[in-house]
């Protein structure tokens, strides 16, 4: 690191970290060459910070719980079914919905990097991108579920889906008991991000009330 015993004047100028310098350099070059438009970048960031998040996925799940035709369409071709709801699919890839049942629990991971269904879940949580999750989810899914506080019956098969750049997955969790007659809006409150990754279950009404 640089010495701090000289040239230490506070009114001398601004500082950018090494990473900030590299990001600015890249952005300037790409803008100058016409590859990107700074306003479009801001729009992307704004969308991911405020509009695109797990709530989009939760609405998809709630709709599938209440509308059998939509559920069927979702399981058949999630890309098409989700696009009917008006979510912007920026990644333009193949989305697959996998349904949890009493017999089978699904979990998603990306062992290579961290491919993730951005358009329905927003950006991935830090742990999804971590090496421990990426490696353990495949080798010991039941152990990972235990870490997340999820205990499944021994008979329930656990299937782990490894996402790729082309195919990404979203878990359709089981609808909790005691939610008969609930509106989609209300049901969506039960659908956590983790329940759509498969490291959690949908909340039950009592948990929601907490």
């Amino acid at each position: 690191m640089a010495d701090h015993d000289h040239d230490h004047s506070h009114d001398h100028g601004s500082e950018l970290s090494e990473t900030q310098l590299r990001v600015r350099a890249l952005e300037t070059i790409l803008t100058e060459k016409g590859y990107i438009d700074p306003a479009a970048l801001d729009a992307i960031v704004d969308a991911y910070e405020t509009k695109i998040g797990p709530r989009n996925g939760a609405m998809v799940v709630a709709k599938a719980w209440t509308n059998p035709a939509f559920k069927q369409a979702l399981l058949k071709d999630a890309t098409a079914a989700v696009s009917t709801l008006g979510h912007v699919s920026r990644v333009g890839d193949h989305l697959v919905a996998v349904e949890n049942t009493p017999q089978r629990h699904n979990m998603i991971v990306c062992t290579l990097c961290s491919c993730y269904p951005w358009e329905v879940l927003g950006l991935p949580p830090v742990w999804y991108k971590s090496a421990p999750y990426r490696s353990r989810a495949v080798k010991d899914p039941r152990g990972v579920l235990g870490d997340f506080g999820v205990k499944l019956p021994k008979e329930t098969e656990i299937r782990v889906w490894d996402s790729t750049a082309e195919t990404r997955f979203i878990v359709l969790p089981m609808r909790p008991a005691g939610t008969e007659g609930w509106s989609e809006e209300r049901l969506a409150d039960l659908v956590t991000r983790d329940s759509m990754i498969g490291t959690g279950l949908a909340l039950n009404p009592a948990e929601l009330a907490k």
Binding site: P125, V126, P132, V144, D147, D189, T192, D194, L203
Partner: peptide, 14 residues
């Protein structure tokens, strides 16, 4: 209404 995941060793949670 989000339920934070239980912090555990191994897999970092947020």
């Amino acid at each position: 209404m989000a339920q934070p995941t239980v912090p555990v060793p191994g897999v970092p949670c947020d």
